[in-house]
Simulated scan of single mutants.
Amino acid sequence: MPTEALLARFLEDLTPFRPLAVWAHGSLGGGDYQEGRSDLDLIAVLPGPLSLAAMGRLIVLHRRLRAEPLAGKLHCSYMTPRTAADPARSHPTWAHDGVRRRPVTPVTRRELHEFGRVLHGAPPATYLPPVPDRELRDFVAADQRDFWRPAVDTERLWKQDIWVDLGLLTFARATVTLREGTLISKRQALAELPVLGAPAEVVEDITRRRYGEQGPGPAPDRRARLTRAYLGPAIDALVAGHR
Rank of each mutant, 00 (worst) to 15 (best):
T182R: 13
H96P: 09
A219D: 13
S38N: 11
R89K: 03
P81D: 02
R223M: 02
P47E: 12
T80C: 08
E192F: 09
H96M: 14
R101W: 07
S27Q: 13
P233W: 13
H91C: 04
E111M: 09
G48D: 14
L50R: 09
R101C: 13
G36F: 04
D32A: 15
V131W: 07
T207N: 08
F10M: 02
L11Y: 03
S51P: 06
L50W: 10
A53K: 11
P194C: 10
R223P: 04
V140I: 05
R110F: 09
A125P: 00
P69G: 15
R222C: 07
V99L: 11
P92H: 09
R173W: 02
V22D: 06
V203A: 02
W158Y: 07
I235T: 10
R225D: 05
A200R: 15
E201S: 12
A151M: 07
L14N: 04
R110D: 15
G98C: 12
Q144I: 11
D13P: 05
L183R: 00
R137V: 13
T175C: 09
E114L: 12
V131T: 04
E68K: 06
L136R: 02
A189V: 14
R187E: 06
G241R: 08
E35Y: 00
L11C: 05
S38A: 13
P199L: 02
P150M: 01
L65T: 15
L190M: 13
W23Y: 14
E213I: 02
M55N: 05
D86Q: 00
P218S: 01
D153S: 02
P199N: 03
Q160M: 15
I59P: 01
V176H: 08
T170C: 00
M1F: 12
C76N: 03
W148D: 13
A237Q: 04
G121A: 05
A85D: 00
E192Y: 00
A189Y: 13
L112R: 05
G98N: 12
Y211M: 00
A174I: 05
G48E: 10
V99S: 06
I162S: 15
T207Y: 08
P103E: 04
G232H: 09
L168V: 03
H25D: 08
R222N: 08
P19T: 09
W163D: 07
G232W: 01
R145A: 15
R102K: 14
R222L: 04
G116I: 03
A237G: 08
V99T: 00
R100Q: 13
P218M: 08
L11Q: 03
E68G: 03
R89P: 11
L169P: 08
D236M: 07
E114M: 11
T105M: 15
L190Q: 06
P150V: 05
G197W: 11
R210F: 00
P130H: 07
E155Q: 04
A240I: 06
P233V: 07
